[in-house]
Amino acid sequence: MKMQAEVIREGELEKRSDSLFQLWKKKLVVLTKDSLSLFPDGHKRAKGKELGFGSILKVDCVERTGKYIYFTIVTKDRKEIDFRCPDQSCWNASITMALIDFQNKRAIQDFKSRQEMEQAAGKR
């Protein structure tokens, strides 16, 4: 059984579709310490798409208009996913902070692993 991750934030975001017309579609979004999950119909009953922070490179290209903040999530395989949110909601900042926190924790784990391996190699 998968442990339920702690929810940092939950709400609505608009995602630009990959279709020819590139329409904006509302998604229910759940932000946790490890991922961003998108649900198509505004309900968590439907199968959501999970973007794990391990596969995200950065949050990029923040642009403000009068009504919206537009931003792009860039994955490690260089796929760009465009989002927009109401100007005051600051979803881009929430996602960026959670991503940085995840990347910092991963860097610390990697550093500790390297130290332990070097210490183990030195004891032989």
Rank of each mutant, 00 (worst) to 15 (best):
N92E: 15
Q115P: 04
K25H: 12
Q4F: 07
G42S: 03
L20C: 07
R16P: 05
L31D: 08
S35G: 03
T96V: 08
C85N: 08
K76C: 03
D41G: 09
L23Y: 14
L51G: 01
I8V: 04
I81H: 04
L57W: 06
F53I: 12
V74E: 05
L20H: 08
W24T: 06
R84V: 05
G42L: 01
W91G: 03
A107Q: 11
I95N: 00
E10A: 05
D101G: 04
C85S: 08
D18H: 10
K76Y: 09
A93I: 13
Y68L: 00
G122P: 03
E116W: 15
G11A: 01
K49G: 01
Y68Q: 00
P40G: 08
I69K: 03
R84Q: 05
K79W: 02
R9P: 00
A93C: 10
K33V: 15
P86A: 08
F53W: 08
L38M: 11
D18Q: 07
V74A: 00
Q119R: 15
V29N: 07
L20P: 02
H43I: 05
V30R: 11
K2I: 15
I56F: 07
K123E: 09
A46G: 10
K112I: 15
L38Q: 08
S89H: 11
E63W: 06
L57I: 06
W91D: 04
K123F: 12
L99R: 03
G48D: 05
R78A: 06
I100A: 09
S37A: 14
R124F: 11
W24N: 07
Q88S: 11
E50Q: 14
A5S: 05
L28W: 08
G54C: 09
D82G: 05
S17N: 05
G42H: 04
T72Y: 00
E116T: 14
L23E: 15
F53D: 02
G48I: 05
A98S: 11
K26H: 11
F71A: 01
V30M: 07
H43C: 12
C90Q: 13
F111W: 13
D101Q: 12
R106A: 10
L51D: 01
C85H: 09
R9M: 02
F71Q: 04
E118H: 10
D41T: 12
L36W: 06
M117F: 14
V29P: 02
R9K: 11
D77L: 03
N104L: 15
W24L: 05
D18W: 11
K67L: 11
F83G: 01
C90V: 09
K49A: 01
L28Y: 10
D18I: 10
N92T: 07
I8L: 01
L13N: 01
S89P: 02
T65K: 06
K49M: 04
M3L: 12
R78G: 00
P40E: 13
R78T: 08
L36P: 00
R45H: 12
